[in-house]
């Protein structure tokens, strides 16, 4: 590796690129807030509804209705923000770390690679970026509700899409042992178990999707219920206050924020970790090592060992 000269951190060009990347992180979120404000119908109090639909087409012959909803827009905004964050953290990398952000970036990369290596084994050592991407996207998608936007993970379509992606990966590795072996495996230990095994295969993505979606949605619903309850309570208790204070839901100050530490922050980050963890365990557990190695032996290829799983 060639030694690159340390970038001039104070130079004007470096600063300008930095500001551009910070704008790349913040502007998509701001654009989402503006879109939400423009499209939210005026209504009284707190209502529990799904994602706003910005655009939908008239179904023509043989077509279903296509929706462009808040969850799609928000997840793209989150993706652009995460891309901006990654570019910002890796801006001005040197062999010897001179900036704080390089230390943070190195810490993140090392942690994700260690996590993947510990849980999936040496064969999957290069899966760090994928797992880190899933975890980061999921965590930031859940945390976006802290700025008042709809969490994309509170929409079952988004989490189901991720779960189907993981399902394809699992299937890809299960077929490594040969299609026939996989088919035979469904009838083990006795043929009566075949339907149950088949349901078990399909249950993995369904349970992954519903677990994530249900946790985020339940947090949002409980927050909305508490918000509306406190609004009603403050209307009935504090209506004697003078002027505009009578209409303000003053009791809503404080308590929802404390509860959101659990329902939004802890629950969101936890579910991101669990989704990534289950992805790792399911994919790593899907590989039929014995059958695969037997097939490789037949074709005169070297055996593969999954070290330190």
């Amino acid at each position: 590796m060639t030694e690159t000269a340390a970038p001039d951190v104070k130079s004007k060009k470096f600063r300008m690129v930095d500001y551009g990347l910070i704008a790349m992180m913040i502007l998509p979120i701001l654009a989402c807030i503006v879109l939400k404000v423009l499209f939210t119908p005026a209504s009284e109090g707190v209502n529990i509804s799904g994602a706003l639909v910005f655009w939908s087409n008239e179904p023509e012959l043989g077509m279903t209705t296509l929706y462009l909803s808040e969850s799609q827009i928000n997840s793209w905004a989150v993706m652009i923000s995460i891309l901006g964050l990654c570019l910002y953290l890796t801006h001005g990398l040197t062999a010897k770390a001179v900036t704080k952000r390089q230390l943070i970036a190195e810490w993140l990369v090392e942690k994700s690679e260690k996590l993947v290596k510990d849980n999936m084994g040496g064969f999957f050592a290069e899966w760090g970026p994928f797992i880190a991407a899933i975890m980061g996207l999921s965590a930031f998608s859940s945390l976006i509700c802290l700025v008042g936007l709809f969490s994309p993970t509170g929409d079952v379509n988004v989490t189901f899409g991720w779960a189907i992606l993981v399902f394809f990966l699992i299937m890809h590795f299960k077929f490594r042992g040969g299609l026939w072996n996989y088919f035979i495996g469904l009838f083990k230990p006795i043929p009566v178990f075949a339907p149950m095994n088949l349901i078990g295969e399909i249950a993995t993505p369904v349970s992954m999707a519903f677990r994530h979606y249900g946790n985020i949605l339940s947090g949002a619903v409980i927050s909305a219920l508490i918000g509306s309850a406190l609004t009603g309570l403050s209307r009935s208790l504090l209506s004697w206050l003078p002027g505009v204070f009578a209409d303000m839901p003053l009791l809503r100050v404080g308590l929802p924020a404390v509860l959101s530490i659990y329902f939004d922050v802890f629950s969101g980050v936890m579910q991101a970790f669990i989704f990534a963890m289950l992805t790792m365990l399911n994919v790593a557990g899907a590989v039929p090592w014995d059958e695969w190695n037997a097939r490789r032996k037949k074709r005169n290829k070297t055996e593969i060992q999954n070290t330190a799983a």
């Binding site: 519903f210 677990r211 249900g214 946790n215 339940s218 936890m270 579910q271 669990i274 289950l278």
Partner: peptide, 11 residues
């Protein structure tokens, strides 16, 4: 968190 899943189905 994994044990919570069945409850979440009900929810």
């Amino acid at each position: 968190a994994i044990a919570e899943t069945t409850g979440l189905y009900g929810l």
